[in-house]
Design a protein around this nucleic acid. Sequence first.
DNA 1: AATAAACTAGTAATAATTACTGTTATTATA
DNA 2: TATAATAACAGTAATTATTACTAGTTTATT
Lengths: 133, 133
Amino acid sequence: MAQIKHSRQREAIRIFLMSRKDHPTAEAVYAHVKEEYPNISLGTVYRNLTFLVDNGEAIKVPCDDGSVHFDGNVEPHPHFQCRKCGAIIDLDFDGTKCENALNKAAATDFEGIIEGNVTFFYGICPECRRENS
Amino acid sequence: MAQIKHSRQREAIRIFLMSRKDHPTAEAVYAHVKEEYPNISLGTVYRNLTFLVDNGEAIKVPCDDGSVHFDGNVEPHPHFQCRKCGAIIDLDFDGTKCENALNKAAATDFEGIIEGNVTFFYGICPECRRENS
DNA sequence: AATAAACTAGTAATAATTACTGTTATTATA
DNA sequence: TATAATAACAGTAATTATTACTAGTTTATT
């Protein structure tokens, strides 16, 4: 029922998220949007990030290290986190086959309903790898 | 170097974790161990959970909903979370094959190092399924 | 038993997120 | 275009999960 009204701040947050290949945290979004709207509040950022996620315009990426990142690319795709620098990186391959196989395997002898799965990769990112060698 | 000393509290926490099929949160561990050690402090629970995880005696399970659970079963095995009640459940199947296939696929055209991956399943747990139908 | 260091309880501090409140911006309508 | 209704905002306070600190207690060692 509740109508949705346009807002400059929300738009700025969306634009920023979509323009980014890295996966900013709420704090990072705040820091950036603040340049355009100096007195935007952190609450507004959180409220709108949640809004975007709920409306399928962004994905919430909770990581193993406890940090929460946001992704403007809503096409299903796997994520990778660097064990060293913590960066979240998109992996560009189609894991659909494996995903389906996994869902099937998981559903065997399981009385509940498997709706899907998320695979999270970890290791060393290209940059840290270069530095280290 | 630092020597490790035995402690009743830590032992109680480990025993409790291992005895559990569900995956208690720090708070749940606290609530339980408190029955035996009424003035154990929450800090002690956190410190020892971290200790157990660091020493390979427990696994930290950070979930999509932001909650953090702990698992006394350190054998690698996939987890499932119910979208309705939030329960974490162990899935009893061997996904090693798929896991390896995924790692291989992910490594293609990736300049970093893929060390591994964690697959997290979601859907409706057996109990919620029964209730709903 | 005496000693040293790890561990604890209790409390304070921090960090991330959510809730609240009075004001502002947006949209629908007159 | 002005008015009215309300979604969204800024600013702040509150909440939650977790970590840090400190003085006292346990544990292991001699």
